[in-house]
Simulated scan of single mutants.
Amino acid sequence: MIYLDYNATTPIAKEVVAEMKPFLEEYFGNPSSLHQYGVKTKLAVEKARSRIAQLINCDSSEIIFTSGGTESNNFAIKGYVLANKHQGNHIITSSIEHPAVFEVCEYLSKNGFSITYLPVDNYGMVNPEDLEKAIKPSTILISIMHANNEVGSIQPIVELTKIAKKHNITFHTDAAQSLGKTEVNVKDLGVDLLSIAGHKLYAPKGIGALYIKNGINLEKLIHGADHEQNLRAGTENVLEIAGLGKACEIAAKNLGKNIAHYAKTRDYLYELLQKSLPQIKLNGDLQHSLPNTLSISFPKVEANTLISRLENVAASAGAACHSESIDVSAVLEAMKVPIDYAMGTIRFSTGR
């Protein structure tokens, strides 16, 4: 079986399993306990926090652990706008966000907030001029993903954050797909909030993190004891936190090598597909996208049918075809991919 769905999830790296194993078999203490059992696990949590901070170039104190990318996005967006609603009620995002951002914005739109969804071009890119035009006096948050999960387009975050800073607006980016596949440096990007998902990074499912720039105030979503700097209640998931920390250490160490490998395998796959099926359509721009992601549209064929016949290949469909209709992804719709092509879109994503 050939696995080409690394954007959906990654296997847990062997080194990550080894890092986690002692906390499954031996070190079980509560990190909040003051005795040696607690101290051992507390040190593991802080070691992982430091490793994540080193990967994205921030202070350890700016990292909060969560249950994954979805919680990180919810906490960043809801937490910020609820804590700062006295300053305004307008949020700007893009039309190609992951549901973990889109659905949060939809929820907020029913609870007193106004949402603007920026369009994208045919390559899935946000135009900074559109962001400038969308800003209002009531705008308090901009949330634009770093890289798209379906077509891989990497947004011009640096240009977008410069606009946000000019207007003194806080900026959040969902980096679930980009971390470990391209450089993610919060200081260079200029972001105030950044979401991380462990299982996209060769760490386990059910663990993530949120970068919160010093000085940014969020309202808590989960109430209880004062864990995670009194920002997220609940005893820390030490086992998976240790795994995420190790995965981030590996990603930092091998980033250049991995990027080159991802691009080589992706480009080779595209070359083979082009030679065999010249009528296919590439979605996105390979020069401005994740090095591992290839979104291909096959004309006048249903993606589910194609995937069902790829018996030895694992990939994802960009459209769900039913008996009476074809549900094309919001990303492909926003990019204005013709329906004859959109219905036959498959995302191939390579890995290490």
Rank of each mutant, 00 (worst) to 15 (best):
S95V: 04
I96C: 11
E97I: 04
E97P: 01
P99K: 01
P99M: 02
P99N: 02
V101L: 01
V101T: 04
F102H: 14
F102W: 11
E103Y: 13
V104M: 07
V104E: 07
C105V: 05
C105A: 00
E106R: 13
L108E: 03
K110L: 14
K110I: 01
G112D: 14
G112K: 09
F113S: 08
S114W: 10
S114R: 13
I115F: 09
I115T: 01
T116I: 08
Y117S: 07
P119N: 10
V120S: 01
D121I: 03
N122A: 15
N122F: 12
Y123F: 15
Y123C: 12
M125L: 14
V126K: 00
N127R: 08
N127L: 06
N127A: 12
P128H: 04
P128C: 12
E129T: 12
L131Y: 07
E132C: 09
K133V: 07
K133S: 13
A134T: 02
I135S: 04
K136T: 13
K136R: 13
T139Y: 05
T139G: 10
T139N: 05
I140M: 10
L141P: 01
L141G: 04
L141T: 09
I142A: 08
I142W: 10
S143R: 03
I144K: 02
I144R: 00
M145V: 13
H146R: 10
A147W: 03
N148Y: 11
N148T: 14
N148I: 11
N149L: 14
N149S: 15
E150R: 06
G152S: 10
G152A: 06
S153L: 03
S153H: 08
S153F: 03
I154V: 14
Q155D: 09
P156Q: 02
P156S: 10
I157G: 03
I157D: 00
V158H: 10
V158M: 15
K162E: 13
K162F: 02
K162Y: 07
I163E: 07
I163Y: 03
A164L: 11
A164F: 07
A164H: 08
K165W: 12
K166M: 11
K166T: 10
H167A: 15
H167M: 07
N168F: 13
I169W: 07
T170K: 11
T170C: 15
F171Q: 00
H172L: 10
H172F: 15
T173K: 01
D174R: 00
A175F: 05
A176T: 09
Q177K: 12
S178H: 00
S178E: 09
L179Q: 09
G180L: 09
K181A: 09
T182K: 01
T182R: 01
E183M: 14
E183F: 15
E183S: 13
V184Y: 06
N185G: 02
